[in-house]
Amino acid sequence: MTDRVRAGRRGGGKGDRVMVPPAEFRSYYGRPIVKKPVWTHDIAAYFFTGGLAAGSALVAAGADLTGRAALRTTARLTGLGAILASTYFLVVDLGRPSRFLNMLRVAKPTSPMSMGTWIFSGFSAAAGLAAVAEAAPLLPRRGAVGLAARALPVAGRAGGLAAAALAPAMATYTAVLISDTATPSWHAAYPRMPFVFAGSALASGGAAGMIGAPTAQAGPARTLAVAGAALELAATHGVEHRMGLLSEPYRTGRAGTLLRAARVLTAAGAVGALLGSRSRTVSALAGGALLAGSLATRLGVFEAGKASAEDPKYTVVPQRERLGTL
């Protein structure tokens, strides 16, 4: 009912949690105030595949410029696959998928989704061109097709560099997208979420390179994977512990489980990447763990936002604290 309910830390746990003083709050029959996002897991999957595509684009461009052909090929193809998956996830999450193109009729600076659609479109075109260029060796060398085949690597490099230039925006705009909502635990995380997503994207892009390229070429991918994993772990820790009551949804329930799994997978993957630099098998296993960790991070962040919208406590208590009338 409208009685006062105690809101505070829920569940037992480790000592490193920030203490949130228990607070009393009132609500309308315990019903949510803000609407929980209507998005499904598809959107979390998109954050993962979009991040993977962005990380891969950076790896591919670096590999191209430093003459690591195998790493370049694997990164470009990973990028293409991730872009195709991203397109699917983006479109199915619309209530009216057939109207996807309505987003390409306007460019609206106040809408991160509008800006993001343009970033994604430009990025996809460039990265797609780079991936198509990988087909050059398969084409005949003579005639008109041969001419195209010889032009392809140049076009591929141009596309790859353009994709790499857009990749950091591609990896981080999604953090702005979820932060720019009234979903309490997403909005509060806006100074940290871009770092979570940037780290997660680097970790996954590097991981894919470690899996697909021979160890002799995969060095930089490994470096990026480890650096990304470290950033992902550190920034996620901040989200889980430095936002007072609004950190709670990241530690409890399904989100808590997913983010704990993400931490274990990402940490194990980073260690494996460091230790297994000479073994293709260890590298591949470590890469797999990093990819799974990145996906679990996105799903955990998604679930935490939903949970924070479902409980009026997360809307009322921080606002009351802000007003100084709790």
Partner: peptide, 25 residues
């Protein structure tokens, strides 16, 4: 939000540059 994202994005780009320049094959 965009400012924070911008810093994170620059960090990503810098990491990539360092990772590849740090070790030529």
């Amino acid at each position: 939000m965009w400012k924070h994202a911008g810093v994170a994005a620059l960090g990503m780009a810098a990491a990539a540059v360092v990772a590849f320049l740090g070790r030529r094959p």
